[in-house]
């Protein structure tokens, strides 16, 4: 049963921000609704007031230039993103994230902004965006500000957005030459599943062998999405041999904080990390060597 609720449908961003400033947490934002409405249907949540932000033009659209990078409106759906050549060819890790969200139907409705603001550690765009060094623009009646992805998730199911702020867009920097990214989602089936674990890598290797820089994120490996900083440090300057990548997996596994639950044991989750971190590094390296994923 869906509880009775009131619905606000602001037509402009100003109107939305104004209303949001007045109502704050009394009002639940809803974009595609694939998280919000599902939680209400299940009876877990009973929001009395929803604000549908689908009409806000400022939150729509995607702009890509090789020099400046990509700007993605918060309302952009996963389906729209997975079909953009710029995402598939340039921001490959993000492509691998958005194209693995739920099913086509879910992706037709679900937005990237909703995925970010839902802030669960299994969100499929979160790891890729963190590895790709994204940031977000948020705005309230008081003005707009930029938050780097690394500071966006202070705790489980929490974002750094203030009570009156809306997520407007996502910025991902321009790609550096000789870099490539990849995201591995480890789930118990191949679609319609949440990541039991995941890892994204953004790798730079000028000679196609040595790691010049790596940004590695881990999904569902801790209460929030995390960077595998020790792993990154270990990799810099090393030749990416099989053994080195394997060791990277072990380091990542050790610095992660997975928990045991009835769904899976901590021990196994750590083991999966040992497998998927090297796997993902190898894919990114292979892309660099083959010249795929390079602007």
């Amino acid at each position: 049963m869906l509880n009775k609720f009131d619905l606000l449908v602001p037509k402009t961003l100003d109107e939305a921000l104004q209303q949001y400033a007045e109502l704050g947490s009394k009002c639940k934002i809803f974009a595609g609704g694939t998280d919000v409405l599902v939680s209400m249907h299940g009876g877990h949540k009973a929001y009395a007031l929803l604000m549908d932000i689908k009409n806000l033009e400022e939150l729509k659209g995607v702009e890509y230039t090789p020099e400046k990078g990509i700007v993605i409106g918060a309302l952009t759906t996963h389906r729209c993103l997975e079909r953009l050549p710029a995402i598939k060819e340039v921001y490959t890790a993000l492509f691998e994230g958005v194209s693995q969200v739920g099913s086509v139907q879910t992706r037709n409705r679900g937005t990237i902004g909703g995925n970010i603001c839902n802030a669960v550690p299994s969100g499929d765009t979160l790891g890729p965006l963190l590895a790709l060094n994204a940031s977000v623009i948020v705005q309230s009646v008081k003005g707009a500000r930029e938050i780097p992805f690394g500071e966006l998730f202070p705790g489980p199911k929490k974002t750094a957005l203030k009570e009156d702020e809306l997520l407007i867009k996502i910025l991902i920097p321009a790609r550096l030459s000789n870099s490539a990214s990849a995201y591995t989602k480890f789930a118990r089936r191949n679609s319609m599943d949440l990541a039991l674990l995941g890892t994204a890598t953004d790798l730079i290797s000028n000679d196609g062998k040595t790691c010049d820089n790596a940004r590695i994120s881990l999904t569902t490996a801790a209460p929030t999405i995390i960077r595998a900083r020790k792993t990154e440090e270990f990799l810099v300057g090393k030749e990416l041999t099989k053994d080195v990548m394997k060791e990277a997996g072990e380091i990542a596994s050790a610095e992660a904080k997975p928990r045991s639950s009835w769904r899976s044991s901590e021990e196994y989750r750590r083991e999966v990390l040992k497998a998927i971190v090297p796997r993902t590094l190898a894919i990114a390296l292979d892309r660099i060597q083959k010249g795929v994923n390079i602007p």
Partner: peptide
């Protein structure tokens, strides 16, 4: 993949589509 699980009170832990997995077309 399929397996209904009970908790200590005899309740189904994974009743529903999220935690009870049947193969999809991608499987």
């Amino acid at each position: 993949m399929e397996h209904l699980m009970l908790d200590d009170h005899g309740r189904l832990r994974n009743a529903g589509a999220l935690d009870y997995r049947i193969p999809t077309i991608k499987d």
